[in-house]
Design a protein around this nucleic acid. Structure first.
Lengths: 388, 388
DNA sequence: ATCAATACTTGAAGAAGTTAAATATTCGCC
DNA sequence: GGCGAATATTTAACTTCTTCAAGTATTGAT
C-alpha cells in the first residue's frame, strides 16, 4: 500500500494523499480539523493517517492548545516528520549548477555550487553528478534517506517525462534530461522549468499555501511569472506560460530587443536598468550594484530609473491580476535585491492599474536568495513523491 | 440514485458523472472508448451507464463504423438523448432581456426577447418572468421537461449562491438574483457572469470541447476574456478575471477613459471604432454600420481604423496566450460582425506577438449572434444539472 | 463452420469511505 | 475527588463503488 523506503512512488488512496498533502503544506493539524477541511469523516482520516504514521512520514504532536470555551479532549495534531526523507534540488544556469538538500518540509539543510564551463549535455550531466556527490558528502544524515533529485532550468520542459524540449540558454532541444540524470545518479529525477518550480515551492511551502490561486513574479535579467489557478500549476499548452516580460507597459518606453517598445523587461530587467543607469551617468562600465548604490545615495536620475522600473513591474502585476484574479501575489527574484528602491512604486502602480477589487489582492515583495531556485527544484521532487 | 424528473440535482457516483459529461460533450462514444478515456474499467462504464439509460438521459446508437482492421463485435455508442430535458437561458442587458430554450446538447429550439426600461431589480424580475412565459408559450414540447433557468449578465457574480455582487451597468450591489428569480419562476436558477457563461458554453458545446485550456475573447463595446485552465473555468478571487480591455497594446494609441493610453478597448471597442471613424470622415453622426460599409467600400482611413483595431486585438490575444498558454483561442462577439475587416490583422498581429510555439495556437475568429449569450446562460444551467 | 478479434455484461471480491456507537481526555463545577 | 458536558479519536458494521476474471455477443476472415 504505502511505500517503504525502497518502493518507487508514493501512491495511496485519495484520502491518504489528501491527508498527507494537507499536513505537509498546512502544518500540524488535528484529525478532526483535517476531516472538516477535506470533507471526509474523521474515521476516514484516522484510517488514512495510520499507515503514514507507521511508515514514519507523520507523527502525533503533544496536545498543546485548548480549543473551545470549556472542555473536551485535546486534539493530537498530526505533523510531518520532516527528517523522514530528504530531497536534492539543483538549479542549472548558463555558468553554474547550484544544489541543495532539503527535508520533507523543504527546509534547506545543505547547499553547494559548481561552475559550469560548457553548456553541452555531457558537461552538465557531469557537473550535476559531481554536485550531487558534493551534497551527499556534506549531508550529515543517512544517505539512504535521499532517493530523489529535482532539476530546474529555464526553458520549455515536459515535467511528466523529464524532457527538456527547448532551452535557449543551453541551446538544447529535446534532451531527455530526466532519464539521463537518473542513469547517472541512480536517483528518481524530476525536471521542471525554473519559474514553475519556484512557483510550486511557494504554493506548497511558502506564501502560496492555502491560496486557491496565486501568482509569482520573478524579476531579474528577465521578468517571469508562475501561476497557480484553481489549486493547480498552470503549464501552458505549447510550452509557453507566464511570459510577461514583453507586455507593453509604458507607451513611451524604450525599444526592446523583442522588436516591441516599452516592454516590462526593457524597463525593469536587470540589463535594462544597467543600460539606463549608464546613459544617465555617462559611465559605460557601471554595474548593477553601483547603480543601486548611486540610487540609494540619492542620485536623482538613477533613482528615477528604479522608480520607473518599479512602476513597470506594478503594471505587469496588475495585468496578471486583472486577467486571472489570483488570491495573492508574490514578487521575487535576484532583481529585487534593491528591494527598498522598488517596493512602494510597485504597489502604487499595481493599485492604480488593478481593476476594482483586484487591487485588494495582497502583494508580497521580497528579494530571492539564489539558492531558492534550487530549493524550488527540490520542492518539485517532494511533490513527485506525494503526487506521482 | 439518479434523479427522476422531480428531484432537484443530478448527483451520482463520480464515474456516472464522468460518463455522462463525456458523452454529453464529446458526442457518441462506445463504452470501451469511455473506459479508456476516463481510466475506468469497461465494467464500471457499463454499470454507470445503465441508470442513465433507464432514466432516458442516454441511449444506445446503432453500431455504425467498423473499428479495427478485421473483426470484432461492433460498438454500440452511447449518445445523449438531447430532448430528455430542456433548459432556459436568459441574458440580461441594460435595455433588454434575451431568452432561449435549449435542449441537453445546448441546441437552441426557441428564442425570444423583451425590452427593459428600468434597470431596477423588480423591473428586471418582472421582464424575466414574462420572457420565461413567452418562451414556455412558444416551446412546442412538454413544459414539465423544463426545470432550470440560467441567467447571465455582466458584472461580478457569485455563481455558487446566485448572487450579483456588483453590476455596473444595472447599478446593482449584492442582489440575490438566483433566489429571487427562483421564487418568481419556480425554476432552479443559476446565475453567472455573461462572459464566463459564454466560455462555459464554448467549453462544453463549442470549440473548447476537449481542450485542457482555452480562452474566449469577446469583442464588442468592451473587450472581455473568459479562461478555462486545467479543464476548469477561471473565476478570479476578487470578482475579477478576464479583464483584458485595458491592456496597453499601442504605445502611441489614443487616451482611454480608464486613464491609461493605448488600451485595447480604446482602439478596438465598438465605441472607439465609431469615434475614430467619425474623426476621419468628419461626420459626427456616423454609426458603426456605416463605418463598416465605408471600410468595405474601400475608404482608406476608415479601413485603417479597422486594421488598427484588429492589430490591437491580436496583441491582446497574444498577451493572454503568452501568460496562460491556452490550447486554443476563440475570438467572438458582436463587434466581429465586420469579421472580414478584422480577421487577417488579428492573426498577423497575434503571430508576431506570441512567444515561440504559442504562435501555433489555433485561433478561431467569428461573429457572435446575440442569442449566443442567452445560450451561454442555458449552458451554465445544463452544467448545474450535471455538476451541482 | 470455425477462429480471432473486439465489445459488452455479469457476479464475486476488494477497496475506500460512511455512520453510529464506544472510548479517551479534558474542563468546570459541586 | 467525582460527575457531567464537550471534544477528539477509534472501532466495527455496513454501503457504495470499482475492479477482476470469466462469460456472452457479434462481427470479418479463412
Amino acid at each position: 500500500m504505502f511505500p517503504g523506503i525502497d518502493s518507487g512512488t508514493f501512491a495511496g488512496p485519495p484520502a491518504a494523499t489528501a491527508v498527507f498533502t494537507t499536513v505537509l503544506t498546512e502544518g500540524p493539524v488535528s484529525r478532526v480539523a483535517l476531516a472538516r477541511r477535506l470533507g471526509l469523516s474523521s474515521a476516514a482520516v484516522t484510517k488514512a493517517a495510520r499507515p503514514l504514521i507507521d511508515l514514519g512520514y507523520l507523527h502525533e504532536l503533544a496536545a498543546t492548545e485548548r480549543s473551545g470555551p470549556g472542555a473536551g479532549r485535546p486534539a493530537s495534531p498530526l505533523a510531518v516528520r520532516a527528517e523522514r526523507e530528504f530531497f536534492l534540488g539543483v538549479k542549472i544556469t548558463a555558468d553554474e549548477v547550484i544544489g541543495v538538500v532539503c527535508d520533507l518540509r523543504a527546509q534547506v539543510h545543505v547547499s553547494a555550487r559548481r561552475p559550469l564551463d560548457a553548456p553541452d549535455v555531457e558537461a552538465v550531466l557531469t557537473e550535476v553528478g559531481r554536485l550531487v556527490e558534493d551534497l551527499f558528502d556534506a549531508f550529515p544524515g543517512d544517505r539512504s534517506l535521499v532517493r530523489r533529485l529535482g532539476l530546474a532550468l529555464s526553458g520549455d520542459i515536459d515535467r511528466g517525462i523529464g524532457l527538456v524540449r527547448y532551452s535557449p540558454f543551453l541551446h538544447w532541444r529535446d534532451v531527455p534530461l530526466g532519464r539521463l540524470a537518473s542513469q547517472r545518479t541512480g536517483l528518481a529525477v524530476t525536471v521542471e522549468n525554473d519559474v514553475k518550480a519556484l512557483t510550486a515551492a511557494e504554493h506548497w511551502f511558502g506564501e502560496g499555501v492555502g491560496a486557491e490561486s496565486f501568482a509569482l513574479i520573478t524579476v531579474g535579467t528577465g521578468i517571469g511569472c508562475g501561476l497557480v489557478v484553481n489549486g493547480r500549476l498552470v503549464s501552458g499548452s505549447y510550452g509557453v506560460a507566464g511570459e510577461i516580460g514583453h507586455l507593453t507597459v509604458d507607451a513611451g518606453g524604450p525599444d526592446c530587443h523583442c522588436g516591441g517598445r516599452g516592454c516590462v523587461e526593457a524597463i525593469a530587467g536587470t540589463d535594462a536598468i544597467v543600460t539606463q543607469a549608464r546613459d544617465h551617468t555617462g559611465r559605460p562600465d557601471l554595474t548593477i550594484d553601483e547603480a543601486v548604490a548611486l540610487a540609494r545615495a540619492g542620485h536623482e536620475q538613477v533613482r528615477a530609473v528604479f522608480t520607473r522600473a518599479g512602476t513597470a513591474i506594478g503594471c505587469a502585476i496588475a495585468a496578471v491580476a486583472n486577467l486571472v484574479g489570483p488570491t495573492r501575489i508574490v514578487v521575487s527574484g535576484e532583481g529585487l535585491a534593491a528591494y527598498d528602491l522598488f517596493d512602494s512604486h510597485i504597489r502604487t502602480s499595481f493599485e492604480r492599474q488593478a481593476f476594482g477589487a483586484a487591487a485588494r489582492c495582497p502583494v508580497s515583495i521580497r528579494p530571492l536568495p539564489f539558492e531558492e531556485w534550487a530549493r524550488g527544484a527540490a520542492a518539485v521532487s517532494i511533490q513527485s513523491l506525494v503526487v506521482p
